[in-house]
Design a protein around this nucleic acid. Structure first.
Lengths: 266, 266
DNA sequence: AAGTGGTCTAGACCACCGA
DNA sequence: CGGTGGTCTAGACCACTTA
């Protein structure tokens, strides 16, 4: 039992905080490269001479910061060396600019269970064979009969019952999941690319097949990187633009290094 | 010991999750109005017949969602009936995912002074007649002869001399401005849309004219919203994807308001 | 089958706050 | 002072992944 002093200064800080600081520093120093595994909990317990609860609290905070991701049966994977805090954009500003606030109507075209084949599994980042609930929808401006986006939404089987709540106005799918399952959306990932429009999308949007379209895929992740929902949005080229704004942000002061060597670069 | 069944569905979900759901529902229903106190932990322990750990886990998630704030010595205050979603994305995560770090080569194709006509002025958001320095460039993967983006960069006349520094590896234009003029980039705006590719871009990228392309326009603004630089990036549809990641902002728990009135709706 | 993280209990002591 | 949430221990069993 080494019961390492855990750290330099901060002797008065809570034990878990000291662990958090130490681990942050070790991740930043490259001791645990991105993609590698943090030591499993039993090892951290030995090393720091604390209870499992304390170790878990420390690692939980690392996960909250996005530095690591925990995976049952696998371990704790390092995801990033630094918590990046320079330019920040909020998702809500994104939605505003997409004019998605109540001024649009959602129309449900269809709904069915799908089993992920190779291609769908790649899109949904899951294993082939998983079952998902698929919704086929279009979104219209509040006044106007031309839809401006064809949206296909996949919802994880565990949350299938949200389909009973889809009529409640212009709510978002992830909003429904949060509302009815108490499962917080902790991260949203978005991939944007240009495509030649499929026949199905083209027909719905009233444009020619294979004309340019903007495809935005959004991944909604819960705690520990569980994929809760995925939406595939296709916009006609002429009718849409995605705007985002990043602003220079204040540097979160504390948290970081007490006596530890200063971060490189930056 | 009532050991309440906690809720409607979700009988198989973890116990803390059932508590979370129940409490969310009760907050939303107005049973605990905004500003009031949630029952203290001992009461929740009795009511649900669970251990303190489980209660705390449930309440912790409410706090994470911003619905409540815990204050030592006071209690758990209800802060909102519904979740306010604040997600943040950092610009650096964007760049990472675009694989723009040193692994690409920039090739300068041309450089000239342009006077903004009506169309260019609209793009650059300036008045017609303004003079800008225009760079025509392509970006290549570190190994490979196929460019993956055609980039046209406009630099405000005041910073024209950066053209002498363009050879310093794979630096960004805005990096050069910050470096040589001490002018901080305070805000970055980005507009993404799909286009039919122009003949010029198509030739450079080796694709057919009018095939789908992804156009990303970035505006770099300095203090006082001065436009310092604008870059227009055109990517071929098959070869590129823009990825962005938003993470839930950490709700700094208590601390905040001493006596200040709580913020309204948000 | 072994090892990981996920959940949960039953205790304990502490720091903080308000009456 | 009494009650609140904050921290922490020492166990236990489970679900999941990998081999």
């Amino acid at each position: 039992m080494s019961t390492e002093p855990a750290s330099f200064s901060n002797a008065s800080a809570p034990r878990y905080q000291q662990l958090t600081d130490t681990l942050i520093h070790e991740i930043r120093s490259g001791q645990y490269p991105v993609g590698s595994l943090l030591p499993p909990e039993p090892r951290l317990i030995e090393r720091f001479g604390v209870s499992r609860h304390t170790v878990r609290e420390a690692v939980r905070r690392l996960a909250e910061m996005g530095l690591v991701a925990r995976r049952q049966g696998v371990g704790t994977v390092v995801r990033a060396r630094d918590r990046d805090t320079r330019y920040l954009a909020s998702l809500s500003s994104l939605e505003e600019l997409m004019q998605y606030t109540q001024q649009t109507r959602l129309k449900r075209l269809g709904e069915r269970w799908v089993e992920a084949d190779e291609a769908l599994a790649a899109l949904l980042r899951c294993k082939p064979g998983q079952r998902w609930l698929e919704f086929d929808t279009c979104r219209y401006p509040a006044s106007g009969s031309e839809p401006f986006v064809h949206m296909v939404v996949y919802v994880h089987a565990a949350y299938e019952s949200i389909r009973h709540h889809l009529d409640e106005g212009s709510v978002w799918f992830y909003g429904l999941i949060e509302k009815h399952y108490g499962e917080a959306i902790v991260e949203v990932q978005q991939e944007t690319c240009a495509i030649a429009m499929s026949a199905h999308s083209a027909r719905l949007l009233g444009v020619k097949p294979r004309s340019p379209g903007l495809q935005v895929v959004r991944y909604y992740l819960g705690r520990d990187d569980r994929m809760l929902s995925v939406s595939v949005n296709v916009y006609p080229a002429e009718r849409f633009k995605v705007a985002t704004r990043w602003r220079l942000e204040r540097h979160e002061s504390p948290a970081a290094e007490p006596s530890a060597p200063p971060p490189p670069g930056d």
